[in-house]
């Protein structure tokens, strides 16, 4: 082990994380993003505090800040490690100390200094009706801010369904003309949809980027294949109940207590691509179907219109 690595494991141990636990996590993450086991030590390296932390500019548009909150819940790595040791968060309105003009200056400085090199994470949809009049920061529309900054990034990661596909504010009749960033700007973005998205999928994408110097393989909706290649239904632990014809028809019933299939209560698992059943949320604590609620299809485009009414079998 070289000195830097020793220091890193020393720091981990001081936090009560053994080297063994850490490697286990890296293995799990490596598997999540679909790399072979030989990459595990390299994944570990990414977390071993790089000398120059990659700069990140995080823009908030038409959104609810749920995606930021979701990332704050990451447990491997913890959010303080992500923010202080792994990435350099140059601009992020929810957590940054600076406000007003000073905050604006941080944005302009970072984009100028790291042009072509920074990762742009976007949370929220872009209002396009009335020249973007429905959403502004510092007197400029989301549309202007997106147009000015997104194309200068090394990569634009759309975190959540809103920046990916428009989200709830784009549901009919979409009063503000909200659109996903790729659609609003006509640029290619990497999309990590979900309402909220699973933080594991953002971390997986970032690790892939830091490790391979490129973004992971994407599907036709620009979602990382490692997370979005299979349907919920195909990975669902309740699938055997579906095959056996064992369904819940009333919430709170014996069938619900037994964990039968939720298809007849409107579960959208068969049409929804995401890794919720395997990745779960909060370090494997749960996911919607485990909590007895049908899948809403929240990582699919236009799910607020296409998947509703939610509680009707399709």
């Amino acid at each position: 082990m070289d000195k830097q690595e020793k220091e890193f494991y020393g720091k981990l141990e001081a936090k009560g994380v053994s080297r063994r636990d850490f490697m286990k996590y890296c293995s799990a993450l490596t598997a999540t993003i679909g790399l072979s086991a030989s990459y595990v030590p390299k994944v570990a390296e990414v977390f071993a505090a790089p000398k120059q932390r990659p700069p990140v500019v995080w823009l908030h548009f038409g959104e609810c800040t749920g995606c930021t909150e979701a990332v704050l819940r990451t447990m491997y790595p913890w959010i303080d490690e992500l923010v202080l040791d792994i990435l350099s968060i140059e601009y992020q309105e929810t957590i940054m100390a600076a406000a007003g003009e000073q905050a604006e200056q941080n944005l302009h400085d970072a984009v100028k200094k790291y042009e072509g090199k920074f990762i742009c994470i976007v949370e929220g949809a872009v209002a396009t009706a009335y020249d973007g009049a429905y959403g502004k920061v510092a007197g400029r529309t989301f549309l202007e801010i997106a147009k000015e900054n997104c194309p200068k990034a090394a990569a634009v990661i759309c975190l959540g369904t809103c920046s990916s596909f428009g989200g709830v504010q784009a549901a009919k009749p979409n009063p503000g003309g909200y659109k996903g960033v790729g659609d609003a700007l006509g640029i290619k973005t990497l999309n990590i949809p979900g309402c909220p998205p699973n933080p594991v999928n953002l971390i997986g994408t970032v690790v892939n980027y830091l490790l391979m110097g490129k973004l992971p393989a994407l599907d036709n909706l620009h979602r990382p294949m490692f997370a979005f290649a299979k349907t919920i239904h195909d990975q669902c632990p309740r699938r055997s109940h579906f095959e056996q014809g064992e369904f819940v028809t009333t919430f709170g019933s014996d069938e619900a207590a037994r964990g039968y299939c939720l298809y007849k209560l409107g579960c959208r698992g068969p049409e929804t691509y995401n890794n919720c059943p395997t990745a779960k949320f909060h370090g494997g604590t749960s996911w919607p179907i485990q909590a007895g609620h049908p899948c809403l299809g929240c990582s699919e485009p236009d799910f607020w219109d296409k998947m509703t009414p939610f509680y009707e079998e399709k």
């Binding site: 309402c195 709170g252 996911w287 007895g292 609620h293």
Partner: peptide
């Protein structure tokens, strides 16, 4: 997450009650 699957945006409330009976 224990009773509501995830946070933010837990998914366990329904009109009429709550769905997480299997978590009791």
């Amino acid at each position: 997450a224990i009773f509501g699957a995830k946070n933010p945006h837990p998914q366990t409330l329904v009109v009429g009650g709550i769905t997480c009976i299997a978590d009791l």
